[in-house]
Amino acid sequence: MRRILIVDDAATVRMYHRGILESAGYLVEEAWNGIEALEKALEAPFDLYIVDINMPKLDGYGFLRELRQQQIAQQPAVMVSTEAAAGDERMAYQSGANSYLVKPVVQSQLLSHVRLLLGEANQ
């Protein structure tokens, strides 16, 4: 079963994304900031990361930059943010994101990005 880590400081958002992903058959874990996410990822890399931008201690950009510096952690990441500014999307990709979604995310949108990045788009 594919493992996905949701990284977001808002508990409600984590619960919402978890519900969508678990109902699609994924195994989901959560982290509430970049530091906690990095610890979990380095302990056992996930198949995919869903990452918020604005979080305390270590934001989403910082988390992805750190993650990409680790040779063992090149798995895809979806960056999710409340912001639709072009600068944020550009920075997301520069930090190592593979796709970018603006909140509020709808189920079909999230799952299509996840499946595409996991190579399951035709399944």
Binding site: Y61, A85, M91
Partner: peptide, 12 residues
């Protein structure tokens, strides 16, 4: 600011 780290530090 466009700098997310700065924004988060300012929020803190």
């Amino acid at each position: 600011s466009e700098d997310a780290a700065l924004r988060n530090e300012v929020i803190g």
